[in-house]
Design a protein around this nucleic acid. Structure first.
Lengths: 249, 249
DNA sequence: TAATTTATTGCACAAAACTGCAAATAATCA
DNA sequence: TGATTATTTGCAGTTTTGTGCAATAAATTA
């Protein structure tokens, strides 16, 4: 196997799973740990990923409070995902959005939990499909090349015919007064449908996105039932959100 | 052999397999390693490919992901996929099944081909989503954990509402008299629906599967329009199939 | 703190790349 | 056509690169 191919493989694995373990990759590609270590080092120097103790994480997964020095240590998105997992109960029917934070949630959902998970995200569906007790249902539709999620009328129609106990969604931008906004029109339509189809909607967002906005509006803050960030609920950055009828975790 | 045609051969090999090894090409064309090295160097300078240590990779490969780590019988499968790619025309609406052979086909579909591809396979959808000119539509449904494909009534219903120009399907087992059979009932139902929805059905199967059978039947050999194996069409193993109204590639 | 895991470093071996050179081949022109 | 020139090719020696191993150091966990 060519070095270049190997590095491409590492990159695509990182893209797919947000994080990789050096040892896993070495075993999968059947080369020594040293080799993978060197590869990861190079890729880090090229800013294609971030090397951390024990492995590597994707750039998209990085947050600006970059204290991600250890693959096992909780970073921002993992912290959010951990809080979200606490909301899950056996037998629930949930929806999972695309994006790295929801992907992280999918990753850490316990194997023994009995869940029915709907998702529009190809990577999330693949990740969940490895868990024995989770019934995964992918919502079909045209695939957005950027986000690797199903979009379009078909997907929206399907969502409208389901009633989720919980939906876990991300957002491009969020602001206490302007609500959730996106750069992409199609994605807004999907999220609108998801929110409408959910008993409870849970927003997962790193604090970095707070107080930002863009062109197309998904919904008001009031349409969200629970908002999870990596911050503690009493953080000052969340003050503006406390005026709304929304639970903050 | 002229230098020009040699370089042309190198380029087409790179296009086909996304990567080459200097040593392989040198042996195949029966010239010295140095010659190929020089050729590759020139082609790199002309931006026709990217020279890397030990070989070369196609320009498109850089963005290409999901390198197959399952190298089992990969050469045979690549040979089948190559024949299948030859059937594709701009503007076609096709269906791609799951399985490693179809995955290989997805992998080598040229970037510049304009296609609408439906698929039930999560990995195939992800692979295709990286190609700019291919409109990917995932068919949703319950995800089979073994095969990472959508199965069930919902997926079947969707398929029944489409008319594919070509469908490329795999099979668990195939026999000239017993037809296509599977170990899994749900998968049979999906394949039946696909065949019904296709103007032309193309079976991709490595020769290893020929003359094998299992519990559940998908269809007779006659329901298949074209059958592609890694063998040459006049191979003895295919003799029994030549009695049927089926094109063999 | 000790025990375990991960990183780093230096080293050896192998594979590949580069260089200069001579022989072979192709192209040009009288 | 034959002689001259330029290009291409293969080979040998050298340099560079890639890989794995083992010893040591650093970081992490219990």
């Amino acid at each position: 196997m060519l070095k270049e191919e190997r590095q491409q493989t590492i990159l695509s694995e990182v893209d797919l799973h947000n994080r990789i373990l050096i040892t896993d990759i070495a075993e999968a590609l059947d080369v020594s740990i040293d080799t993978i270590r060197r590869d990861v080092k190079e890729l880090d120097a090229e800013n294609k990923l971030r090397k951390v103790h024990g492995g590597a994480i994707s750039m998209g997964y990085m947050t600006n409070s970059a204290r991600n020095t250890n693959i096992y240590k909780l970073d921002d998105k993992a912290a959010i995902a951990t809080k979200a997992v606490g909301m899950l109960r056996d037998g629930a029917v949930i929806f999972l959005d695309g994006g790295t934070t929801c992907m992280e949630l999918a990753r850490i959902i316990p194997e023994n939990l009995n869940l029915t998970c709907f998702t529009i995200s190809l990577p999330v569906a693949m990740e969940l499909s490895h868990k024995a007790n989770i019934n995964v249902i992918s919502i079909g539709g045209q695939i957005s090349k950027e986000a690797q999620i199903a979009i379009g009328a078909n997907a929206i129609h399907h969502i409208s015919e389901i009633r989720f106990d919980y939906s876990f969604i991300g957002t491009g931008y969020v602001d206490a007064t302007f609500g959730l906004t996106e750069f992409d029109w199609d994605i807004v339509q999907i999220k609108k449908a998801v929110i409408k189809a959910s008993k409870k909607t849970v927003l997962l967002s790193i604090s970095e996105k707070l107080n930002s906005q863009h062109r197309y509006k998904t919904c008001d803050i009031n349409s969200i039932n629970t908002m999870i960030t990596e911050l503690t609920p009493d953080n000052l950055l969340l003050k503006a959100f406390r005026n709304h009828d929304i639970k903050i975790l």
